[in-house]
Structure formats: structure tokens, C-alpha cells
């Protein structure tokens, strides 16, 4: 057990540790969260429990485990709040595409910062989410909501050659980014199929270690034509591109102090996210050294 694991800010939050359907009745699975060994075990009645695995092999049962949105949520300490509300999971008009788990050898905060970044579209997702000829990032709004527990970037607009698996022609797409926790973010993005409606892309990062992450992700999309596989393929290609960048960033822990990196206007979300993380007192996955 490292010092960072005793980080009270990290311990009092909720994390997705598995997709519910992955653990069948009578089955168990061992995973890691915040540098600790965790066993998830579903009994024959279908109830999933979790316990912390000590060094000597002893299991300490955890009480804060919840199944919601088809995902297993775990808090290793005393939860300081409710799990994120995403009412769209209960609405019927969208398809829920579960993108499985994808490992990334970097901090979860690097993953989230990249997820909420508009200006990489043209260079990392050339031909789908952006293009060299339309790299300019128009101004957007950044604000705190829910008593400053959530960070939002709204009115984000970007010209996208192919915004989703269902998209036809290039379009100017409107985005809202919602950062609910250091490790969880949701995109609300214009549906190009159902005008006036939003598609959701949810990113739930499970921090195994400070610089090793597993990304659980769901897309809630309006799409009547494409197969699950086709939609998955679209997202996997996007994520593979993101990962190729994420594993090349130095340092792996996200620097949060000003002037460690040099941002520009379009980095407003990143600046707010780093400042918000710094103020939160979180240590896990962050590089707090000064420039």
C-alpha cells in the first residue's frame, strides 16, 4: 500500500470497476482500484459484492458497491456524494453501446483532459472529428455547476467531417462537456439523426494505479441504421487514436500547477480542470511539483 492510496479525496469518490453483465452469478473477478486489490463477487442470487484484498490474502468486505446504468460502482471509503445522475440511461430512444474496457498506461486525469479537448480533433482524429483545414477552435464557455462539484464546458462548436457512425456529411457540431469527477466525464453532442436531440458519450476511468488506467465507456446514441459492431468500430478507431497520443505524454501524472505547461485560449477547459483538481486536494494521479 502506498501513501497515495490513503488519499482521502480519492477514497471518498465513486469509480466504475466493471460492466455488470461481465460478472455472472457465482463468478468473481479480481481487479485493482487506486493501487489496491479488489475482488468483485456475484452470488447465486445475483447480488454483486466487493472486498478489499489485504497483503495476507484476507478479504475485507466493502459496503459501498452499487449497480447502476449497467455498471458496477465502487467507493473504497465513505462516499461524499451520490453517484452521477445520467437520466438518459433510463430513456428509451437511444441505443446504449458499451465499449468495453480499454487499458491506457497513463493517469486517468490525462485521459479525461484529452476527452474534453477540442483542439486535438484536427490532428489526432483527422477526417472524422476534425480536419487540417478547420482547426480553429471557436470560443466556448466554462462554468462550475452543482455547487462547484461539476465542471462544464458548453457551447463548444466544431466542424466535423464525420461526427459519428451515423453522420453523413461534414457538419458544425455543438458539444457540451460535463466533468463530474476527476475520472468521469460525459459529452452531450448534437445527434445528426434526431435533430434537436443529444447523443451521449460517457467516459468512466478506473484508476488501477496512479499512471495505469482502464477506461470503461458507453455511448448513448440515436442510430437506427448501423450495427452495434459498426458503431463500436467507429469509437474504437477514435479511442485508438487518442491512446496513441496519451501514452506519449510526459509526465504521465497530470501537472496541475500553473506554468508547468503553456496553455492557450482553447485550453480553457483544461486550465479550469487542472485548477479544480489542484484545489480539490486530490493527490492520486497528479503531479503537484512547481515549474
Amino acid at each position: 500500500m502506498t501513501d497515495k492510496v490513503l488519499d482521502p479525496v480519492a477514497l471518498s469518490d465513486w469509480y466504475v470497476v466493471a460492466t455488470a453483465s461481465e460478472i455472472e452469478p457465482g463468478r468473481s473477478e479480481q481487479t485493482r482500484l487506486l493501487g489496491l486489490d479488489v475482488v468483485l463477487r456475484r452470488n447465486t442470487e445475483g447480488v454483486c459484492g466487493a472486498s478489499l484484498l489485504a497483503g495476507d490474502g484476507a478479504e475485507r468486505p466493502m459496503t459501498s458497491i452499487v449497480e447502476r446504468y449497467g455498471l458496477i460502482w465502487l467507493c473504497l471509503g465513505t462516499p461524499r456524494r451520490e453517484i452521477i445522475a445520467i437520466p438518459e440511461f433510463d430513456e428509451s430512444q437511444r441505443r446504449v453501446i458499451r465499449r468495453g474496457r480499454i487499458g491506457v498506461a497513463t493517469s486517468g486525469q490525462r485521459v479525461i483532459e484529452n476527452f474534453v479537448d477540442l483542439s486535438h480533433f484536427s490532428f489526432v482524429h483527422t477526417g472524422t472529428l476534425g480536419g487540417y483545414d478547420n482547426a480553429e477552435v471557436p470560443e466556448y464557455r466554462v462554468e462550475f455547476r452543482e455547487d462547484a462539484t461539476e465542471l462544464w464546458a458548453t457551447e463548444c462548436r466544431f466542424m466535423q467531417p464525420k461526427a459519428s457512425a451515423a453522420a453523413g456529411a461534414a457538419e458544425d457540431v455543438l458539444y457540451d462537456y460535463r466533468i463530474w469527477s476527476p475520472y468521469i466525464s460525459v459529452i452531450y453532442k448534437d445527434s445528426l439523426v434526431c435533430r434537436g436531440k443529444k447523443d451521449l458519450i460517457c467516459l468512466f476511468v478506473q484508476p488501477l494505479e496512479e499512471t495505469v488506467s482502464v477506461v470503461h465507456s458507453c455511448a448513448l446514441v440515436h442510430d437506427e441504421t448501423n450495427s452495434d459492431n459498426h458503431i463500436l468500430h467507429f469509437y474504437h478507431e477514435i479511442f485508438a487514436q487518442d491512446r496513441s497520443v496519451l501514452i506519449q505524454q510526459l509526465p504521465k501524472k497530470l501537472p496541475v500547477k500553473p506554468r508547468r505547461d503553456i496553455p492557450t485560449i482553447s485550453d480553457a477547459t483544461s486550465i479550469a480542470y487542472r485548477r479544480w483538481l489542484d484545489k480539490s486536494g486530490l493527490e492520486f494521479g497528479l503531479d503537484r511539483s512547481l515549474p
Partner: peptide, 20 residues
């Protein structure tokens, strides 16, 4: 490769595509 920032031979950034 990440955001297309262009650096001159002296190391100074001369172009940020997000804000041409």
C-alpha cells in the same frame, strides 16, 4: 503531433492552429 503547434528552429512556437 497532438495539436499541430509549429516550432521554429530556435524552439519558439510560431503558429497555433486553434487560433490562427
Amino acid at each position: 503531433a497532438y495539436h499541430g503547434w509549429v516550432f521554429e528552429n530556435d524552439g519558439f512556437c510560431s503558429h497555433i492552429p486553434a487560433h490562427p
